[in-house]
Design a protein around this nucleic acid. Structure first.
Length: 205
DNA sequence: GTCCGGATTACCT
DNA sequence: GGTAATCCGGACT
C-alpha cells in the first residue's frame, strides 16, 4: 500500500485526501474518517504554525503521523495529524467521522448534548468528534501509527470499507478561518457525505 | 438565526 | 496588560 504515513511525510494536502476512509480507533471505538482539512506553515496563514513555534503547536514541528490536539474557542478540543518532516510544520484536521463500532460508548461520551441524540450528529464536527472519542490534551503528541496493533491508545488504521475514489472526493474552502480562504483544502468523502460537519454547497460535486 | 463560553496567542496600546 | 481572533457547538430567542 502507498501508505498514509509516507503521504503525510511528503504532502499534507494529498494526505488529507488520502486519509478519507481511514479508521480512527481507540479501544473498541472505531470510526471512518469522512472530512479533513490540510494546514501547513510554509505558505498558509491559517496554520497555527505560520507565525511562530509555540508550546501549543510544538508537536507540529515533530515527525509526521502524531496527534496534534489543541483547545479552541476556550471550549473544544480539536484533533489533527501531524505531517511533513520535522521543522516543516503541517497537519491534517479531522473534522468528521462515521461510527463503525462502539456506538454505545460514543453515545455515552456525547450524552451531555441532547442534540447529539441522532447518531448522524455524534461526530459531525471536529469538537464533537473529540468528545465522542474522549480526546483531550492528554492525547497530544501520541503516535497514531504504532508498530504493534493498537490496544487502548488512539490510532489510525487502514479503511475497513472501500475508500472514496478520486472522483468521489468533494473539495472546497476550509471552515472557520478568514485568512487562507482561497485555498481549497477541505475534503469530504462523497460516499458518506451525510456524515460531514455541515451541508455541502450544491457547487460541490 | 443569534448569542456566548472563556484557552491561547498575536498584536496592539 | 488589554483586546481581538480563533481550525466550534449548544442553548436559546
Amino acid at each position: 500500500m502507498a501508505g498514509l504515513l509516507s503521504m503525510l511525510e511528503r504532502d499534507v494536502v494529498r494526505a488529507a485526501q488520502g486519509m478519507l476512509g481511514w479508521t480512527l480507533v481507540r479501544g473498541s471505538m472505531r470510526a471512518r474518517i469522512v472530512e479533513t482539512e490540510a494546514y501547513r506553515a510554509e505558505d498558509d496563514p491559517a496554520c497555527h504554525a505560520y507565525r511562530s513555534r509555540t508550546p501549543r503547536n510544538e508537536v507540529m514541528f515533530g515527525p509526521a503521523g502524531h496527534a496534534y490536539v489543541y483547545f479552541n474557542y476556550g471550549v473544544h478540543w480539536m484533533l489533527n495529524v501531524t505531517a511533513h518532516a520535522p521543522d516543516r510544520a503541517a497537519a491534517v484536521l479531522i473534522r468528521a467521522a462515521m461510527p463503525l463500532a462502539g456506538l454505545e460508548q460514543f453515545r455515552l461520551n456525547r450524552a451531555s448534548a441532547p442534540s447529539a441524540k441522532a447518531d448522524l450528529n455524534l461526530m459531525s464536527g471536529p469538537g464533537k468528534l473529540c468528545r465522542a472519542f474522549a480526546i483531550t490534551g492528554a492525547d497530544n503528541g501520541v503516535n497514531l501509527f504504532p508498530r504493534a496493533v493498537p490496544g487502548t491508545e488512539l490510532a489510525l488504521l487502514p479503511p475497513e470499507n472501500r475508500p472514496p475514489r478520486k472522483s468521489e472526493v468533494l473539495t472546497g474552502p476550509r471552515i472557520g478561518i478568514t485568512l487562507g480562504q482561497e485555498l481549497p483544502w477541505r475534503f469530504v468523502d462523497g460516499t458518506c457525505r451525510e456524515w460531514s460537519s455541515k451541508p455541502l454547497p450544491p457547487a460541490w460535486r
